[in-house]
Structure formats: C-alpha cells, structure tokens
C-alpha cells in the first residue's frame, strides 16, 4: 500500500488497511491521523488500564492541550509526556514517527501548521476515526485468530 503523495511510509500506510474509512485526502490531516494512530499504538497499559473508560476522552483532551505550539515535534513530545506513551518497539514505525514529526522534510513537504491545524480544530473527529480503526483492527485480529 502506498500513498498519493509518494511518502516512504509503508508501516503507517499499512495501518490504514484495517480502517473502515478512506485515508484523509488532505496531506496535513492524513499525517495528523497517522500520528494519532501511532499514539494509540504506544498505549501505556500501566497508566490507562485501570481507567480505560476515560482513555479516548483523555486522548482528545491531551491532544487539545499539546497543540498549543507551532512544531509537530514539540506537539508529539507534549503528547508523549501527557499520555505517558510507551516507546515504540517496532523500528520501522519509530522511524516513520520521526519523519511524521518533521513533515516539512517529507518527499512531499507539509508544513507543521497544516498538521497541527486539524488537531486543534477537530481533535475528536480524528480520535473517533482512530477509535473506529482500532475497533476494526481488533475485530480483524480476532477473525484471523479464529481462522487459524
């Protein structure tokens, strides 16, 4: 799976395979959604498992709080701190996360503002998309296990 902008991001491209939605067509929104998917993949069980019912709402609130910057790198750092995200163990995903945090160096460059703007304006929509993706991803995993 590739993306229409020619970004070399195969690991996050693959994440969209489980999403019930078409990937967002705006490059800034598309990167924002990839980052939130990665944030969810960095879910900290120790911190959130006892208050899982607050997790998604907490993610929205913390995105809103972390967006008050003009740098995606800074945003990611704040989100990591606030959500107590665990370090990514998958090397490829970690590499892509680092690229996504510097969207202006991608092969099709996107400004930090274009990525942060949707996160500021409609974080809940992006989190809800991620939540749906997660639901479908889990269902796909279960059906794969059953088939095996």
């Amino acid at each position: 799976m590739t993306n229409e902008w020619g970004w070399q991001l195969p690991a996050t491209d693959a994440l969209f395979q489980d999403s019930p939605y078409e990937p967002l067509e705006n490059p800034g929104e598309n990167i924002a959604e990839r980052l939130i998917m990665i944030a969810h993949l960095s879910f900290n069980t120790d911190v959130w498992s006892t208050r899982i019912d607050r997790y998604w709402e907490g993610l929205v609130e913390r995105i809103e709080g972390a967006c008050n910057t003009n740098s995606v790198t800074e945003f990611w750092q704040r989100l990591t701190d606030e959500m107590a995200l665990v370090p990514l163990s998958a090397g490829e995903l970690l590499h892509e996360k680092n690229l996504l945090c510097r969207p202006s160096i991608l092969s099709y460059p996107v400004s930090d503002f274009e990525v942060l703007n949707p996160l500021r304006s409609y974080p809940r929509d992006i989190v809800d998309r991620t939540r749906m993706w997660n639901q479908y991803r889990k269902a796909a995993k279960v059906s794969k296990l059953k088939a095996a």
């Binding site: 019930p20 939605y21 998604w56 409609y122 809940r124 929509d125 809800d128 939540r131 749906m132 639901q135």
Partner: peptide
Amino acid sequence: DAPPFGVLSKVSV
C-alpha cells in the same frame, strides 16, 4: 460537541 462514539460506532461507516 461531537457525535458520541457509542452511537456513532453503530452508524454505518
């Protein structure tokens, strides 16, 4: 402020 997920997730994608 936004459609509650519990209902939204039951609506066709």
